[in-house]
Design a protein around this nucleic acid. Structure first.
Lengths: 341, 341
DNA sequence: ATCTCCTACTTAAACGCTTAAGTATATTCT
DNA sequence: AGAATATACTTAAGCGTTTAAGTAGGAGAT
């Protein structure tokens, strides 16, 4: 087993103490070092192929340069990473931004027997991003221990923690209002589970608001919710096709659901947008490639990731003093799945 | 700044030495400890909310329980994580398997100024999985230092490293042969860049083999390659529509490309499968939800992830002695995008 | 009563790094 | 010439664990 070369080896090779090596590696300006010593040490580093051990540095420094990203694999019915390329892009951009600042991303699903709070503490994370999960009651421990924490797409009570959300309610409103402006009055709503306060519930509020502002009563049978998946979409589509008073439009809170709905409707002989108009949410790749292409509420994964990083860095600099709750704007991308009637 | 409680605190609280606390936490059977001491220590741990620092443990142990996953964000033309939910599922499953064995996943894109070899060494990773990248010449350093390493979807020269691949060539053959059996003879091939030996090149070989076995000559103009993306697919679709002798079928090496092609063809007034048959690769979510649904070469992301973990664990146990090169089988999922002529 | 062997601990070094404090030599100032 | 200052280092403690080796006290054997 080849011995992993460390600072001591460099120090010996260059004929200096490990402290000197450390000073040189960290380019500390408060410590003067002779140019030829620097050269000698750098040569030794190159010769022996030395790479610093960040774990050891972390212990001495109390900074791991490790950021956790906790993202549930089986959230209220959705398989985020698996079926939603939106989060794929979010992760990719977040990782890149962090890496460029010298941080590494530790990715974790939701663990049944270990909360993200424990993860953050045992790995001594320098920060943690939690997606789509409620604030654990232990979460305040993280702030007490000064571990930066940003919630993404999680609706929290109060504003004790930094968070990044989108205008979910406005998004629901935007979608439904657009349908109404196109002459629709019987509008179904299909979403993930509405069990707790979360993005689905918010979007549902927006939907309801648009209806009531236009004097349209909410019909319970028009509200369907289940697992955010293609297959549940199909099921919902079939249910909608079978309704006595069939909706002329459907608002789905995810593109993936919308595609399923499209398929479900089609299997019952109904076409989008001829028979039923459809509007989705996320406006990712799926919306673009659908046939017909899907009108959808657009959100920007890259922006969300960059903003998340910004809030994280802010907390690193100024501590818990700068808790911020950001709500990113949404827009409507009009494509071919809504028909004016 | 609240002081992070450590073993010393537990030791003091329970009136024992830190060694004893360590022995209790690690439940070492070679060290006998009085039951009431165990109780006292566990009580202290609970009372003070102690969580071990894995970084410090790693330093003492020389085991970080950290596995790296390096996945290029802008590989030969594709944006893997962003546009390919296949890799999303791969990552999710891999992470879960690792987590259940007590490992954490460190996710990294490809870094311009830091190879995965350096990452593995500086983070003292216990193992590393490299996706879609050639073996760095430094990669042998990892084996020398006994760091388990598995390449996924990377074609390497020789078999010095463990690897997980799929039967890419057979997949290309399978797809093309199926088209031929359905009466097609003018078959276009659309893929990511063919610059180096890799999955695209292998699939291209399979395509060529099926053609020649059936006495069909390869036509250079039928071979298109570019960025693996929806937009390149559209472009390719348009090019195909404009060919003097138009192909009656197209084999695309990614579902995402196939969908773009579908769109491109449609923009020129051609329908799938009426005018042009189409077959994709991956058979992920996109193939299923496409309209018409896409016949595609199926590969199993979860299996790939589990097998990867297995090779990694094998190397951890038995060292570099058990290098294995696995090639997972593929199958054809028949859907609605290929017409018999 | 002495020796050996358990049991149940403790001590202290080590893991690879950082950093405050110390030291030796050379340079500049008075 | 002696004091003050600057330069270029080294020493050693500390970060939070693990673990080999040591030790004290009691039980059992002789």
């Amino acid at each position: 087993m080849a011995h992993r070369i460390n600072m001591k080896d460099i120090a010996r090779e260059a004929g200096v103490s490990v402290a000197t090596v450390s000073y040189i590696i960290n380019k500390r300006s408060d410590q003067s070092i002779a140019p030829d010593t620097v050269a000698r040490v750098n040569e030794a580093i190159k010769k022996l192929g030395y790479v610093p051990n960040l774990g050891a540095r972390a212990l001495a420094n109390r900074k791991t340069r490790l950021i956790g990203l906790v993202i549930p694999q089986a959230e209220t019915g959705s398989r985020m990473m698996l079926e939603n390329s939106f989060y794929g892009e979010f992760i990719a951009v977040l990782e890149e931004v962090l890496r460029q600042s010298g941080y590494s991303l530790l990715l974790s699903g939701e663990d049944v027997n270990k909360s993200y709070v424990e993860l953050a503490r045992e790995r001594a994370l320098d920060g943690i991003v939690v997606v789509g999960l409620p604030a654990d009651q232990d979460a305040r421990l993280l702030l007490e221990e000064n571990i930066p924490l940003v919630f993404v797409d999680s609706y929290l009570e109060g504003n004790a923690y930094s968070s990044v959300n989108i205008q979910d309610e406005e998004g629901g409103y935007l979608a439904c209002d657009y349908l109404i402006k196109n002459g629709h009055r019987n509008i179904a709503f299909v979403s993930g589970f509405l069990t707790q306060e979360g993005v689905n519930r918010k979007r549902f509020r927006g939907y309801g608001k648009a209806l009531s502002e236009n004097g349209i009563g909410e019909k319970e049978e028009y509200v369907l919710s289940g697992r955010i998946s293609y297959s549940y979409g199909i099921e919902a589509g079939r249910q909608i096709a079978a309704m006595k008073v069939r909706p002329t439009a459907v608002f789905a809170t995810a593109d993936i659901l919308a595609l399923g709905i499209m398929r479900g409707l089609k299997s019952e002989g109904l076409r989008v947008p001829r028979d039923v108009s459809l509007i989705g949410f996320d406006d990712g790749f799926l919306a673009m490639s659908a046939e017909p292409s899907l009108t959808s509420i657009h959100q920007d994964a890259g922006q969300k990731a960059r903003v998340t990083a910004r809030l994280l860095f802010a907390q690193m600099d100024k501590g818990a003093a700068c808790i911020e709750n950001l709500v990113l704007p949404l827009s409507l991308t009009v494509r071919d799945s809504v028909r004016r009637i």
